[in-house]
Amino acid sequence: MSRQARTGTAPEVSLRRELHRRGRRFRVDFALGSVGLPRRRADVVFTRQRVAVFVDGCFWHSCPVHATRPRANRAWWETKLAGNVTRDRDTDKRLRSAGWHVVRFWEHEDPRAAADAVESVLDDGADRGLPRS
């Protein structure tokens, strides 16, 4: 598992390129310790608007469409992957209670559609008097 890319995956980079092409500026691989979530990171963050974006891998986060389960050491993997999903839901809940907007996408989703959704959240924030990026 140490060889798995934690950041800079192809789906994440595609989303970042699309957001950057649209003129959006953001932070990458942002540590959420300042929000009270030590050892957790968001893929893309708009700090002033308090928007955290996550691009979840289908395997690691148990996509309902594409998730697979290894045959070897099945019990360990089921516990590991269930823990990932539980941590994701906890992160979402804690960020929202701290006043953040959480946007999650699966790695197989179209980066243009994902960027549209992120911009929708950012533009809604601008309507509430929050600064735009």
Rank of each mutant, 00 (worst) to 15 (best):
D43E: 12
A31F: 09
R69I: 03
D43W: 08
A42Y: 09
G23M: 04
H20K: 07
R25P: 05
T47V: 15
G36S: 13
G23H: 08
A67M: 00
T68A: 12
F46P: 07
V35Q: 05
G23E: 08
G36I: 11
V65A: 06
V44I: 13
E78F: 07
R41E: 12
V45R: 05
L32V: 09
G57K: 06
V44R: 10
N73G: 14
A31G: 12
A82I: 08
R41C: 15
L81G: 07
E78W: 05
C63L: 06
R40V: 09
R87D: 02
P38W: 15
R40G: 13
Q49S: 15
R17L: 11
P70N: 07
R21V: 12
W76H: 14
G57T: 01
R87F: 01
T86D: 11
F30I: 01
L19A: 07
E78N: 12
N73S: 15
D88I: 00
R25H: 10
L19F: 04
G83S: 09
F54C: 10
F59G: 00
A82N: 13
W76P: 10
P70T: 05
E18L: 02
V53P: 02
V55N: 04
S34D: 14
N73H: 13
G57Y: 00
W60H: 00
D29L: 02
W60M: 00
K80P: 14
V53H: 02
W77C: 05
R89Y: 03
V65F: 04
A75E: 09
R22H: 05
R87P: 06
A72T: 01
V28R: 13
C63R: 00
G36Y: 08
L15S: 04
H20C: 02
R39L: 15
D29Y: 10
W76A: 12
L37F: 11
G33N: 14
R50W: 03
D56V: 07
V53T: 08
A52W: 03
V44H: 10
L19N: 04
P64K: 01
V65T: 07
D29I: 08
T68S: 05
K80T: 15
N84M: 09
E78V: 08
R17H: 09
L32T: 02
R48A: 15
V85C: 02
E78M: 10
G83N: 09
V51K: 03
A75K: 11
T47C: 15
V51N: 03
H61D: 01
V85F: 01
S34T: 14
V45S: 06
G33Q: 12
D29F: 06
A75M: 12
A31H: 12
L32C: 10
T86Q: 12
S34F: 10
V55R: 04
P38A: 13
A82K: 11
W77E: 03
R27A: 05
R27F: 08
R40F: 13
W77F: 11
K80M: 13
T86L: 09
D43Q: 08
G36F: 10
F46Y: 11
D29K: 07
S62W: 01
R40I: 09
